[in-house]
Design a protein around this nucleic acid. Structure first.
Length: 748
DNA sequence: TTCAGTTTAGTTTTT
DNA sequence: CTAAACTGAA
């Protein structure tokens, strides 16, 4: 045994962490609670493997769930051991899967330039398949089939492994045929979906013993982060890879398993000791992140879950800072209060990067963003899908066609965007022709010249388009990706299409495209760029500017902040009634774990908040405080009782109303719409004039005059040039000329 | 084929 | 409420 004192990176580890780092042989499960330093254990362990000479960089594989975690791990390992860390295989399950798949794609029937499609394209493809099969898509929508197919893929089930037991009776057994055809169509398009990035590599190893042996010999040590979130396909893949050397280290926390709906199996972590012979289990329970009060809250909540290994976090960080809770009349009231507290924190010199607002659903962020914009508080939203915007998807579809001509979904998207006079009928004929001759759309279109299906004018248009694409493809060898895309968008008149549209968003769309050009400028090849955009969803650019972070609870896992706000703790919203409906008691426990994740993000200060009224999809709904709030320690629950579970007592404590009955009747039953209307017209207007006034005050901010200096969160300072109702023409100092809705800028 | 006007359906979380 | 899907006229 080596004398570990000589390794200075081991210094500062506690006893348990140290055991976790130094137990290098055999299967190890590190049960690590929130904030107990699991990333540190993982990174130090990699360093230790290398420094002790147990392993070479290229023999180690480290798997994470998010790109963010992968990046952090790379950074930290790099800092300890230097550039040789580059050779360690580090990445997400999906990116490592993609890498393995590109090496052996021909064994699956793919070409190495395959493209990765997203959910929208999955649905589109399934719709096509379904409509050809004459299925009643009202009864069985594409989404329904997609859910089943995805869950099969999560379980590692290829079409051939689907037995009668798997087939749901309600789709007349069609589902298997659809799955088979779906996979065939993907292969023909040289495309894979997210599930395939795990399923194909798994099949690869299962069906090809030489490939398996090659990888098993290569990878001597495997490390897995967030093991509680692995699904069956990932588990099987990992098992195959590690079964030769049997050196596997899994780190996870069963209390933070929040991806059950995506096929994650908590039982992977619960059964670890049975799965892997001679395994060791190490527990990390000392928390270095949060105060004792915050941990009390977290422990108190999570102990309501029955299905857990059980552990209690403790800390030496005893600070007398209470966890707060407040009630609001509605979402804008709540947003206002959060804004006020943050302004206090700014006065207390808390850095904005140390503040986060964590929500159950994105829709909750709208009110908060609005408020932050109107008070000029800089923020950033994690996980907004830049790549989901129409113009971005269009641009990417052009790139996809250039990289993979077989990609029908992309081809179909751009063939008539911008308008080229090639409509649905033409496309239908093209795909028919393609099917008869076993060709994808692109080649079918190329080939169509010889046939007499179309009139001359249509053929002319198609040829023109095909020639354009061929020309662009030649650019791949001579120009940089950025210039190619710019030229494509120019020559296809795609820019022109938006310039001709007079709406104000058209301008933002063009600036979004410019932003995309900047992203693509960092890549050497179009293919590299494509891989990036399809696997990258978190847009976590650095936060040096000083912005409050807004994100979902799911996205928050793995991060920490001094001050954390948890708004929207209302029953039905959180726990989401949908997850209760679908998952029952298990669903509730998963929601509780999600709450636990949220609470344990906080280092110093934690604020719960719930609103009595909230507009959900345009309809005003009243709601009760979340049942989770009742599970918190006494000093918090007491404050809820004082506010009462009614929406109105807050504003008139002398009069007691019995609204309980009313609330009980609220919901999704018949007549709920009428009831909510009643509520808006009668109750809110008459009983709460003072609140209406409040919001009027807010709108006062929005009156501007020409020439005035204004501030916009994203574009910075500028001058108002013109005013058109509530739309302002603003010339920004650093961002040029823009049309902005007046409530998005602030007076200086 | 395109476009505008109308109806309907979907409303959680992510790689 | 919003976005997608549908319908019908030019």
């Amino acid at each position: 045994m080596l004398h570990s004192n000589q390794y200075n990176y081991l210094q500062g580890l506690n006893k348990q962490q140290r055991i976790a780092v130094e137990t290098l042989d055999g299967p190890v499960l590190v049960l690590s609670g929130a904030g107990t330093g699991k990333t540190r254990v993982l990174t130090t362990r990699i360093a230790h493997l290398l420094v002790t000479g147990k392993s070479k960089p290229w023999n180690i594989m480290a798997v994470t769930f998010t790109n963010k975690a992968a990046r952090e791990m790379k950074d930290r390992v790099g800092r300890i051991i230097g550039p040789s860390s580059e050779q360690v295989l580090m990445g997400t399950f999906h990116s490592l899967g993609a890498r393995m798949l590109r090496q052996h794609c021909e064994l699956i029937g793919l070409k190495s330039n395959f493209t990765i499609i997203d959910v929208e394209d999955q649905v589109k493809l399934l719709k096509q398949i379904i409509s050809a099969k004459d299925v009643d898509d009202k009864r069985w929508p594409a989404k329904y089939f997609l859910n089943i197919i995805s869950s099969w893929k999560d379980k590692g089930l290829t079409p051939s492994k689907i037995t009668d037991n798997h087939i749901f009776e309600h789709s007349n057994g069609l589902i298997k045929d659809i799955y088979i055809e779906y996979q065939q169509r993907l292969l023909k398009s040289n495309c894979v979906d997210f599930g395939d990035l795990l399923l194909h590599p798994l099949e690869l190893l299962q069906m090809n013993s030489d490939v398996l042996l090659k990888w098993q010999s290569k990878i001597t040590h495997i490390l897995i982060d967030e093991y509680q979130d692995t699904n069956t396909a990932q588990y099987l893949w990992i098992r195959l890879l590690c079964s030769k050397h049997n050196n596997i280290c899994c780190v996870g926390d069963d209390d933070q398993s929040i991806y059950g709906w995506r096929g994650a199996e908590v039982k992977n972590i619960l059964n670890f000791s049975n799965d892997f012979e001679n395994s060791k289990v190490i527990r990390l329970e000392q928390n270095y992140r949060s105060t004792n009060k915050i941990l009390d809250v977290a422990n108190c909540l999570i102990k309501n879950n029955t299905n857990r290994l059980g552990k209690d976090l403790w800390t030496e960080n005893n600070i007398d800072q209470d966890v707060e809770i407040f009630n609001s009349y509605d979402s804008s009231d709540e947003a206002r209060k959060i804004g006020e507290i943050i302004e206090d924190k700014i006065r207390d010199k808390v850095h904005l990067t140390e503040i986060a607002v964590l929500v159950r659903t994105f829709s909750l962020l709208r009110a908060i963003e609005e408020r932050f914009i109107s008070i000029g508080l800089p923020y950033r939203v994690i996980g907004t899908k830049f790549y989901d915007r129409q113009e971005i998807r269009d641009a990417i579809a052009y790139v996809r066609v250039l990289c993979n001509p077989l990609d029908d979904l992309a081809f179909e998207r751009i063939i008539n965007t911008p308008r080229r006079g090639i409509g649905p009928t033409t496309i239908k004929k093209l795909s028919e022709h393609g099917r008869q001759n076993d060709m994808q759309l692109f080649h079918s279109a190329e080939n169509i010249v010889n046939s007499e299906i179309f009139n001359n004018r249509t053929v002319e248009k198609i040829i023109q388009f095909i020639n354009q694409i061929k020309k662009w493809k030649l650019l791949k060898n001579e120009k940089k990706p950025m210039d190619i895309l710019d030229q494509v968008l120019e020559e296809s008149s795609y820019y022109e299409m938006w310039k001709n549209e007079k709406s104000e968003e058209a301008e933002t769309r063009i600036s979004n495209l410019k932003e995309l050009l900047e992203v693509i400028s960092e890549f050497d090849t179009l293919e590299g760029f494509l891989q990036h955009v399809s696997l990258m969803t978190d847009n976590d650019v650095g936060n040096e500017l000083g912005e409050v972070t807004l994100m979902t609870l799911h996205a928050a896992k793995g991060s920490e902040y001094q001050v954390v706000f948890l708004p929207g703790w209302e029953d039905g919203l959180f726990p989401s009634f949908r997850s209760l409906e679908q998952g029952g008691e298990d669903g509730l426990e998963e929601e509780r774990r999600l709450a636990y994740v949220g609470i344990t993000r906080a280092k110093k200060e934690l604020f719960f908040s719930y609103a009595s009224n909230r507009r959900i999809n345009g309809i005003w709904m009243s709601s009760l405080p979340s049942r989770f709030l009742k599970e918190l320690p006494k000093d918090i629950t007491n404050k809820i009782d004082a506010d009462d579970y009614s929406a109105y007592s807050l504003y008139d404590e002398n009069v007691s109303y019995d609204y309980t009955q009313k609330f009980k009747n609220q919901g999704y039953g018949p007549g709920w719409k009428r009831m909510s209307e009643l509520q808006i017209n009668n109750v809110i207007d008459k009983n709460l004039p003072q609140l209406q006034k409040n919001s009027e005050n807010d709108f006062q901010i929005n009156k501007f005059v020409k020439g005035e200096r204004v501030f916009h969160v994203k574009f910075g300072m500028g001058n108002v040039i013109n005013i058109n109702d509530d739309k302002l023409d603003i010339k920004f100092d650093n961002a040029g000329h823009k049309k902005i809705q007046s409530n998005f800028v602030k007076k200086q």
